[in-house]
C-alpha cells in the first residue's frame, strides 16, 4: 500500500451540500459523515455529521465531557497516541479521508495545526520553538527560517513583544505570550487548518481578549475550529457554532442563529444556562 502523500492531494471544488450554508461560494474544508469514536468498548461520539467551512471560525460548545475535545483531536488524528481507540465514519479534509489506511499522519499534522488548552512551549528559546516544525521538515536555510519565524510571530501578534529576545527562553514569557507563541509555532509550518482546544481557558481576561482578537484576524487565512466552554467567547469569535451533548451533535448553525434563535430546546437550555 503506497503512502498517500498528503501534501500532494488533489483539491476538489465540491459544491456546497449542507443546507445550512447560505452563501454559495463558501467551500467546505472539513467534511464529517457519521463519525463514531470509541475508547475501548465505550462509545464517546455518535454519528457526528457536519461540514466545516473554509476560512471561517467554527466553535464547538457543550458541557464538559460531551466529546468536543475528542472530536477536535480526531481531525488531526492526535487520538492515535491514545491506545485502544477506534473510529467509524469519515472525516475528510478537502475530500480526503484522514483515516485512509496508509495515510502519512506526519504530513497530515503539518497541514492541520493544533493549539492546546495549557500552553506547552518547549524548554528552548523563542526562536527555536517557532522554528521547530521547520527543522524537522528539513529546512536548513537560516535566512529563510528567520523570515518564516518572523512572519509567524507577526501573524500571532507576538513579534513586537519578543523581537528583541528571540534567543531568550520561551518559559520566561507570560502565560498569554506563551500561548501566542504556541500559535506562532503551529503557524510556522503553514497549515490550512488550525485546531484550538480551549486556547484561552488558562489565561487572564486581558490575555484572553488578545487571543480572541488574534483568532478573528487569523481566519482570513486559516480555517479555525475552536473548542470552548465559554459561550460568550463562542458568540464573540465564531461564525458557526456546533453544540455537542453526550457525544451527539445536537445543533449546528450560524452563530447568530444558535445564540438568538436556536432550533432545539436543548440548545436553548444550554445557552441560557439551565445546565452545564
Amino acid at each position: 500500500m503506497t503512502t498517500l502523500d498528503f501534501e500532494r492531494r488533489v483539491e476538489t471544488n465540491r459544491p456546497v451540500t449542507s443546507m445550512q450554508q447560505q452563501a454559495a461560494d463558501v467551500r467546505t474544508k472539513i467534511s464529517v459523515r457519521d463519525f463514531d469514536f470509541y475508547y475501548g468498548e465505550n462509545q464517546v461520539l455518535h454519528g457526528i455529521s457536519l461540514e466545516i467551512p473554509e476560512k471561517q471560525v467554527t466553535a464547538l460548545i457543550g458541557p464538559s465531557g460531551c466529546g468536543k475535545s475528542t472530536f477536535l483531536r480526531s481531525i488531526n488524528r492526535m487520538n492515535d497516541t491514545i491506545p485502544g481507540t477506534r473510529v467509524g465514519g469519515v472525516i475528510s479534509i478537502d475530500g480526503l479521508d484522514v483515516n485512509t489506511p496508509g495515510l502519512d499522519v506526519v504530513a497530515l499534522r503539518r497541514r492541520v495545526g493544533m493549539v492546546f488548552q495549557k500552553s506547552n512551549p518547549f524548554p528552548k528559546s523563542v526562536f527555536e520553538n517557532v522554528a521547530y516544525g521547520l527543522r524537522i521538515g528539513g529546512l536548513r536555510d537560516r535566512g529563510l527560517m528567520e523570515e518564516i519565524v518572523e512572519k509567524s510571530l507577526r501573524r500571532a501578534a507576538l513579534w513586537d513583544e519578543v523581537k528583541d529576545r528571540l534567543n531568550a527562553s520561551a518559559l520566561a514569557l507570560s502565560g498569554g505570550q506563551q500561548q501566542r507563541l504556541c500559535i506562532a509555532r503551529a503557524l510556522a509550518v503553514d497549515p490550512d487548518i488550525l485546531l484550538m482546544d480551549e486556547p484561552a481557558s488558562a489565561l487572564d481576561p486581558i490575555a484572553t481578549q488578545k487571543i480572541e482578537e488574534l483568532i478573528w484576524e487569523l481566519k482570513d487565512n486559516y480555517t479555525i475550529v475552536i473548542v470552548t466552554h465559554n459561550m460568550q467567547q463562542a458568540a464573540r469569535v465564531s461564525d458557526r457554532t456546533a453544540f455537542f451533548m453526550l457525544g451527539k451533535l445536537v445543533e449546528y448553525d450560524d452563530t447568530n442563529t444558535i445564540f438568538m434563535n436556536p432550533a432545539q430546546k436543548m440548545t436553548e437550555d444550554y445557552i441560557t444556562g439551565r445546565f452545564g
Binding site: 503512502t3 502523500d5 501534501e7 502519512d104 506526519v106 504530513a107 503539518r110 521538515g137 528539513g138 529546512l139 536555510d141 529563510l144 518564516i148 509550518v189 503553514d190
Partner: peptide, 8 residues
C-alpha cells in the same frame, strides 16, 4: 518553500 522539506 516547504517543498524543500526532507522527503517524508
Amino acid at each position: 518553500e516547504l517543498s524543500q522539506s526532507r522527503p517524508a
